[in-house]
Structures are given as C-alpha cells and as structure tokens.
Design a protein around this nucleic acid. Structure first.
Lengths: 262, 262
DNA sequence: CACCCTTACTCGTATAGACGAGTAGCTAAG
DNA sequence: CTTAGCTACTCGTCTATACGAGTAAGGGTG
C-alpha cells in the first residue's frame, strides 16, 4: 500500500541536471535541517518514497545512502530509516590530566562520567608485553619491548573510546602498572610514585573514517568518523614514559584545549 | 574485453554468510593494506571485477562504494577508481599563535606553508558586518552585531581550510581589522595594538562528516571527514575578543597540543 | 604538424524484478 | 492469559539491462 509520506517533501525538478537521487537526498536533508523530521524520527519508508517520487527503489536507496554517509540518518533492518539522534557529547578538558585530579584517586573517566550523570564502564582489559610498532617505538625512544594496556570505555552501555597505553618495559615490568588494575589515580599516579614526575603531555589529534574493526569495537553507525588522539607523556627528565593511542567515536566527543598567547 | 585483474584478488566464499559485496570490499581493502595496490594506483575496473568475481555490476559498485566511504579509494569519472593518495599533512602546533611568531609580521599559515615547501594561497575573502549566530554570540558576550571575516586557505592549489573570524563590532569597526587586508601579523597583531593584549585561546575540536557545501568548498573526496575547530581569543581583561570557526579537511591536518602536567 | 572525430574504454544514473531477513502486530491455538 | 505462528511491513542483497557522460588514444583530414 504505502501511504503518502505527508506534505513535507516536494517534487523533483526534471529540468535540473542534478541527479534524481541527489535531489531526493537534498529534499530529505533540508526537511531534517528544518526540523520537519526530528531527531530519532522515522523517515518515510523506501516504498513510500518510491511512490511519492515515482522512481525506482534503487534510486531511493541511493538517496538514503547519501544521508547515511553524511551521518544524518541511519537505517535499522526491519524497522526503517531514522534521523540520527545526536548523543550527548563528552567534553575532554585540557586539564584533565592535572595532578590535582590524579590526587583525588579516581580515574578521570569515572569522575567525569558520574558528574555528567552517566554510568561509566571499562572493559576488554588486556595487559601484555609486546614489540612496539615503529611509530610508537620512535616516540618512546625505541625500547625493544613495551607493556601494552588495552581497554575500552563505555558510557551508559555505549562504547565511546578504545585506548592502548604503551610504556617502556624496563619502566613498567614488575610494578602495579603491569597489573590489570593499576590502582587509584591510574598509571600516571604510579609513574610519579616510581619517581617519574610528569612534566607535560604532547597530544596529536587526527580525524578519519574508522576501519571495519573500529566500527565493530565502537559500534559506530555509518557516517561517523573517529578522532584519533596520540598522547605522549614526558617526565621532568624529558623522557617519554608513556604513549597512549586513543580512538574515539567522533559524535561522542569535543576536545577542549587552552593555549597561552605568549 | 576486460583483462584479468591480475592474481591479487582471490575467490569468494559462497558458504560465508558475509554479503558478497562485503567480501569483495574486504579483498580489495586487504590488497590495499598489504601494498598490493599502491597509493594512487588504479584499481581493477568495474567490468574487470565483474568478470573476475562473476557477479553483477551493482554488486561490484557496492563493494567499491564501501571503500570510498572508508576513505580508501576514490573514483574518477571516465578514468577509474584509484587508491586514495594520502596528501602530506599540515601540522598545527599549539604555539602557532605565540606572540613571537606574530611579531615576525607574516601570517602563520604563510610561514608554515613556505617552510614546508608548499605554495600558500588565501582566497574568497569577505569581510562584512552581520548578526551573530547564537553560539558565536554567546562566546563573544552577546554583542548585537559582529564583524565577520571569511576566507579559504589553499596549499599548492588545494583548498584545505575554510575559516570565519567573528569580532565584536564595537571593537573592530573602523580599524584595519575591518579591511580586507589586516596588515602584518594579522588581526591578532592589530588587536594588541588596539590595547587588547591577548592572554590565552580556548580551542574546541570536533570531527564530523562534511555538509554538501563544505564538500564543494574544500573539494573533499568521499570518505574524508572534517575537523571543526572553534577558537576563542581572550584578552588580559578576560574579554573574548574574537571567535574563529574553522573547518579543515581532516586528511590534510594533524593538530598538536602541549599540555602541562601540573 | 595541428586539429577533429571516432572509438573504446571508464564510471554515473536509472529501471524492474526477485528473494532474503529482521520486526512488529494480530490472531488463533493451547 | 499466554504463546506460537501468520502476515505485512521494513531494509538488505543481488541480478540484468540500458543509456548517459567523461576520458584518452588512434587515425584521418586539413
């Protein structure tokens, strides 16, 4: 049957040289932007759009694929295509590794999440020794082996971040850093106890589309990029004592930095 | 005719429950990752893939569409589908707005680009007064009107960044800041001459897929996200004197920040 | 030699049809 | 009342075909 998709969508312009599926995508996009379709709302079904515009199903699907790749919509098998809701973003302040926070004992992730009223979780914890990849190795001063701490962070059940910390093995082996639970304040607190007083962090921020394994790990819907953040921690001797390679769902994060002007 | 696409690609697994077009995408992706197809190299044509895998053209196109949405490949009408070359990245250091750079007279963009051996350009310059959008207005302390300076940056002819600076009108009107060419050292130098000694900058970093107009403006190929950076400049009185809203092609940038540990 | 046209390839767009698989609601059986 | 199954909807996958449009190279014409 396929009922009419309401009066929200107009007609095609046959004189336009813009491809039909793009015109359809344009119309739906504009309707979303104008709030005619609200966050989380169901878009007209493929068959409704087929009937409304008088085109074939593949044409409609192409139009919807555009919106999905733009991150505006996402489809659910058997249910429909929906306006992608914007999840609450987590803001990472540039002072999040300040010593005073560390001295509170709890991990930064936990404290922040609870303050925001979310339930934080950490899972798929893995700690092992391994040979570092070239770029990691270079940042750490080319140690033969490193300790790798892998984990995934979730907010209210949603995975938002996957991180791997690498530490030179000579520094971490036999310490609590090599334990699954590094204790209060996290590994930075342990590093300072071991005499590596932290001086500063370098962070490199990139954005790109996720690999298939990242899509799986972070349960990303299509059209959501990832932010890749590589942080290197230096002690007061100028030695790089940790590299943390983090991949974040871009729709869940805003990174905030403060720079001095002088 | 369609010659064989060489022995790089294997066969499909008919027993797998993974969709055929995904299997094809997987094979090509793996071949790219392993360097069997190098950067900029042409992938087998659609008809070659059709023949090799014994599937229909739409199936092959679906597979190629996956790779494009992942940013691994990009198609050129009439020519073929190519492994997307990774352009050289521009690194934005966190001290790029330090006063000592400003005092050199040249703009940060120009200096950096020339140091990297690239030809920098700035175009589509537009300076006008306008009513600020709510989020911009809030950051600037809710001025009634602002001066907006729009421009686009190119490296070796490739657009990489589009930026808009907003300044409270009472601060900028009638000064050189309202001129198309703000003079040596840019608007930050002018602001300091006007008595607004800069104290610090706040930067907010996000990543998302580009809007159609951003795709056009930055000539983005599919599968390339954008980095959105919103910088607020504060003077020593704590007043926000400028907000700069920047959209960057994510494949052209790495942002580098340094954070103190204390 | 310079230019244009043909030709053969490339990807882009669009149609029509088929079947599969997930979901949700109704209905009939227990 | 509960549940199992039917049914009608949703999107997912795949085939086959057709024509349009951009590219590049060959070959003929001027």
């Amino acid at each position: 049957m396929a009922a009419l998709p309401s009066g929200i969508l107009g007609d095609l312009d046959p004189t336009s040289d813009r491809a039909v599926f793009r015109q359809i995508a344009d119309q739906i996009r504009e309707a979303i932007d104008r709030g005619r379709f609200k966050e989380g709302a169901k878009l007209p079904s493929e068959s409704e759009l087929v009937e409304h515009f008088g085109v074939s199903r593949m044409t409609v699907r192409n139009a919807l694929a555009i919106l999905q790749s733009e991150g505006l919509a996402s489809s659910e098998h058997g249910k429909g295509v929906f306006v992608r809701p914007r999840p609450p973003v987590r803001r990472l302040a540039s002072d999040r590794f300040a010593r005073r926070h560390r001295e509170q004992g709890k991990s930064a992730f936990t404290v922040e999440a609870e303050a925001a009223g979310s339930k934080p979780e950490v899972d798929s914890l893995e700690v092992r020794e391994e040979k570092p990849a070239p770029d990691i190795s270079a940042r750490l001063g080319s140690p033969r082996k490193v300790l790798a701490r892998r984990r995934r962070y979730l907010l209210d059940g949603r995975p938002v971040e996957a991180a791997v910390s690498y530490l030179p093995l000579d520094l971490a082996r036999g310490t609590q850093i090599a334990e699954p639970n590094p204790g209060p304040g996290g590994i930075y607190a342990r590093l300072e106890e071991l005499g590596h007083r932290l001086d500063h962090f370098d962070e490199e921020v990139r954005a790109r589309m996720p690999s298939p394994s990242e899509v799986k790990m972070l349960r990303l819907s299509s059209g959501v990029p990832v932010i890749s953040l590589i942080r290197t921690a230096y002690d007061t001797d100028g030695r790089a004592v940790e590299v943390c390679d983090t991949v974040m769902a871009a729709d869940a994060y805003v990174l905030a930095y403060q720079l001095p002007a002088n």
